[in-house]
Design a binder for these strands. Structure first.
Lengths: 198, 198, 198, 198
DNA sequence: CATGAATGAGTCTTCATTCAT
DNA sequence: GATGAATGAAGACTCATTCAT
């Protein structure tokens, strides 16, 4: 079973295959719960190949996070450039929900001095203007916006990306219905907030 | 150093000490990252005492979660009974942020069929009437509300409880300021939503 | 076979058994060539017990060396106190030849900034007076003596302790004969040197 | 850094470069502590090139030892032919101290049935006549001499070659001073012995 | 002639858990 | 009621060696 993976994906190089598989396993079990053996087995490669390409389990995580934030920045750039709405953003989160999960799990650990999620805030900050238009607000205003953006927009959306599948399973609702209800809730809450700001 | 703990807290029985310490360590490192050895060391007791009182690491988690959801239900009951506002609720989350962290971390793992956070939704559901008044809405309406409540209220508040300290550290803001901004954001988003529902 | 060890030596505590066995294995294969598995097997205990008592393979070496130099100092003290001759010293080296081997092997590695053998010189230095009588020689004289003592006495004797068995095997000579010839050679070389000093 | 090696020494063929580098690394860490990877890295060549030229790590050691003993024999021949003193011999040992180290390290391992150092004795035996003149001594006399030669001459000299640098470092003495003191000690010990024999 | 990629058999170490007292 | 010692099953990582090109 695992072997199929190898043959069917042998086109892409081993490094990427490992990274992809690691993302899955990390999302499944969390970084600490993940086993290098499992990554290797799932990727259909010997464990030692992982150590040929990466320094260790840690590097796997690092590179994955780097990749995630790089594409997060890209999606935000695109969004601000072509004015594409939040549906694209939502799509991004859903497609990258594996890594999003990992980011959130690692960030929640108290001993993490700087939660990785804050890089999301940092990136949000970079695109301030595109999101809020040319503003010459002071630090306080800026912080207010950041807080609102992070806690009442980014977090719910990330939560949606991570929990929607399980929610549908558990509450026996259709994916479409959940999405509609979520979008509606977001509109009536965070959407309302943005309206107010104008 | 660890020994002080023992003497200063030896009044409370070992069982509770272990549970408390476990909560801390789980919050610090996540369940998978936590080591029974570390719990014992931090509690200043021999590791074997943990196995004397508990079946294993798993039981530690189970009991902790059970405790958390029991008090969560209590706080919701109080809230609905004496009509105390969300500040009390917020206080609860902050005080129990260690366990909240654990709940959220475990819930985020994809292989968790039923994310533990959903028990929050279940409990929310129990107090439906108290929160929304006597409603005879249909299933769809109920779901809509649940979605809104979970993703745009519970999640942001939980996130706030978990990240506020790190946020203050990282963005160099005062705890009061952050709380004020967060409360304001919640008011303008989820608060607005509740207004609409009337 | 390995199990016998456990039963026959279970009187002495595990820690010492491990240390003893480690000394043997280190002497056999050198520290780098030694396997923790082999130490455990030879001692008839599970590998994990080694890690219960010691931090790791390194600590095994450290403690062993510490022990060796401690008893080396003792033998020198005895020698200087009761004036017992070099035969006792020789006996000591022969009895501790396992650790002596380890010391010499590790010392020979070029990347060892401070060869452990030099601790022998240090200890020799401590017993200066006892060995050479009250001397008020200057630094140069002292150094001269140290060099002679180390290279033409300590080293040959250590070499004898390490190689005598193999020598007898290889050159088909009796242990007594070899010892007699060695003692004779030492007498005619280093012994002569000491005579000269008077 | 490693790359320079390649370019600056690419004249000499890879085989020799590998051998040279291996000698260094073996001397640094001992055979067991040495890593093929490190040899390759230090030589600035791909690891696989080592396996292209040699059967394995073992062969590297074998060839190196063979080379060492061959040149040892040569130096002894020269010495006996042109009557050049021990300074030339000493120079040889110093220049080949890397391999001498390896020989001594490997010889000290107890599980080595035949310590490689004994080849030194064998070679010494070959040049018996040149060293001691035409002698028709019996086996006992021969053995006596061999023992004296090995333990009170070869060993101290080898030790000097291996430890002199570290000694100077540690005891803060000049190389010249150490050499002078060592030569003096040798003269007063082993030198005295040879005088006696006449 | 040479090499980047790959690999299997180790090798050290960890950890949850149990045992004997 | 408590605990120091013990342990097996994994876990991360290493390393000499081989392969495909």
């Amino acid at each position: 079973m695992a072997k199929e993976k190898l043959s069917s994906e042998s086109s892409k190089n081993a490094r990427e295959l490992i990274l992809e598989t690691a993302a899955q396993v990390f999302a499944d079990k969390g970084f600490d719960g993940a086993r290098v053996d499992e990554i290797a087995a799932k990727a259909g490669i010997p464990k030692s190949l992982i150590y040929y390409h990466f320094k260790g389990k840690d590097q796997l995580l690092e590179e994955l996070l780097e990749m995630f934030f790089k594409s997060y920045r890209n999606i935000l750039r695109e969004k601000s450039e072509c004015g594409s709405g939040s549906s694209k953003y939502n799509k991004f989160l859903t497609e990258h929900s594996d890594l999003l999960r990992v980011v959130m799990i690692e960030s929640l650990k108290k001993n993490t001095k700087i939660p990785t999620v804050f890089r999301i805030v940092e990136i949000l900050l970079e695109f301030e203007k595109e999101i809020y238009g040319e503003t010459d607000q002071n630090r306080e205003e800026k912080h207010k916006r950041l807080v609102a953006e992070f806690f009442t927009s980014a977090l719910p959306m990330a939560g949606f990306a991570c929990y929607s599948d399980a929610w549908c399973d558990y509450f026996k609702v259709d994916k479409k219905e959940l999405y509609a209800d979520f979008a509606d809730a977001m509109q009536k809450t965070h959407g309302e907030y943005h309206k107010k700001q104008e």
